[in-house]
Amino acid sequence: MPEKPIGQIMWRDLTVKDADQIKDFYSAVVGWKSQPVSMGDYDDFNMNLPESGETVAGVCHARGGNADLPAQWMMYVRVADAQTSVETVQKMGGAVLQGPRTMGEETYYVIRDPAGAVLTIFS
Rank of each mutant, 00 (worst) to 15 (best):
A57H: 01
Q35V: 06
L49W: 00
A28P: 00
Q72R: 13
D44Y: 01
N66G: 05
D44F: 02
S52G: 10
G65K: 05
G40V: 07
E54H: 12
D41N: 13
S38Y: 04
P50R: 07
L49K: 01
W73N: 09
V30H: 01
D43Q: 11
A28D: 11
D41K: 11
W73V: 10
P50E: 11
G40E: 09
P50D: 10
N46W: 10
H61G: 04
A57C: 04
D44K: 00
S38G: 07
G31K: 04
A67Q: 14
V29G: 02
P70I: 05
Y42W: 11
M39R: 13
V77S: 06
G40L: 09
S34C: 07
N46A: 14
A28F: 04
C60P: 00
G65I: 08
G53D: 04
D43F: 03
R63H: 10
V29M: 09
A28S: 11
N46V: 03
V56S: 05
Y76A: 12
W32V: 09
T55I: 08
A57N: 01
P50V: 10
V30A: 12
L69R: 13
S34Y: 08
N66Q: 12
A62D: 04
N48R: 13
D68Q: 08
M74L: 15
G64V: 06
V30C: 10
M39D: 09
V56C: 07
D68F: 08
R63Q: 12
M47Q: 12
F45L: 07
S27I: 05
L49R: 03
Q72F: 03
W73Q: 06
C60L: 14
A28M: 09
V56G: 09
Q72Y: 05
G64C: 06
V29L: 15
G64F: 01
D68M: 07
G31R: 06
M39Y: 02
N66T: 04
G58F: 01
S27Q: 09
D68N: 14
F45G: 03
S52V: 05
L69Q: 11
G58W: 00
G53Y: 02
G53E: 05
L69T: 06
S27M: 03
T55P: 07
Q72K: 14
A57P: 01
S34W: 05
A57R: 01
M39T: 08
G31T: 01
C60E: 08
H61N: 14
A67R: 14
W73K: 08
D44I: 04
G65W: 02
Y76W: 11
A57Y: 02
V56I: 13
L69M: 14
C60G: 11
L69D: 13
V56P: 02
H61L: 11
S27A: 12
R63F: 03
G53C: 10
M74T: 08
D43G: 10
V30R: 01
T55K: 13
E54P: 00
V59R: 00
W32A: 03
V30Y: 05
Y76H: 12
F45E: 06
L69S: 10
G64K: 13
V56F: 03
